[in-house]
Amino acid sequence: MTTVAVPAWTRRRALALIERNFMIYRRSVTPLLNALVEPILYLLSIGVGVGMLVGTVPGVDVPYAAYVGPAILATTAMNTAFNQTSFGVFIRMRVEKTYEAILPTPLSVTDIAVGEVTSAMINGLLTSIGFLTLMAVGGLVTSAWVLLALPASLLISYAFAAGGLAVTTYLRDFPDFQYIQLFMLPMYLFATTFYPLSVYPEAVRPLIQALPLYHSIELVREPALGHLSWDLLIPVAYLLAFGSVAMYVATRRMTRAMLR
């Protein structure tokens, strides 16, 4: 296939697209607050409400809500980033045709992809900061290492923003988003968000451990509970690899689709 080569000096132009996305956000904080509503509801109703019935998770000596909180933080970073590069990009690509106007500028398709993923990462970080603040206010922070959740949220956002972008290049129409839901919802429910891996039968565990959200949760929850170990490099490596492969697929497919 033919690609239009892009010299490195245009890379910084991806910044212009980030500027565009934040020009829209600057006008109101609603999107940011919106992204926080659902996780807060889950934290209150399942973390606190059902938490009263759960007591403590076996092997974990903190209240259930403090166990669930970091996992919900990871899912928040995931959803914020993913939504921006799936729904958001799909609308800009197919409905608003925003990129059609950008293509004739010096920005390359790669710049567009990098710009979108970076904006999504910034958003993921901002919602994570918001959620972490609320967790702290609610007394759900038990270790100072929870601050590692912020760099972690950038990494999670990277992986899922790139993943969202790659998936979006395969979508034809809005109903196709339901198939994404078919993957995202079970992952949300089953990737140890609400209970530990030990609940699952031995045979099922590798399946759960293959999920990107599982690693995202590990990366936030372990430090949040004060457990630091070299094992954390596994989710770091996993998410980096996942994001980079997705980024490669996304850029390739977007270039092919847009530079016809």
Partner: peptide
């Protein structure tokens, strides 16, 4: 060469496409 120097060429062109493709959010 547009195949190799796309960004440099595009930097010096103005393009009005058939549809406006304005940024409706701005």
């Amino acid at each position: 060469d547009p195949m190799k120097q796309g960004p440099e060429i595009r930097a010096r062109l103005g393009v009005v496409t058939q549809d406006d493709h304005l940024d409706n959010e701005l």
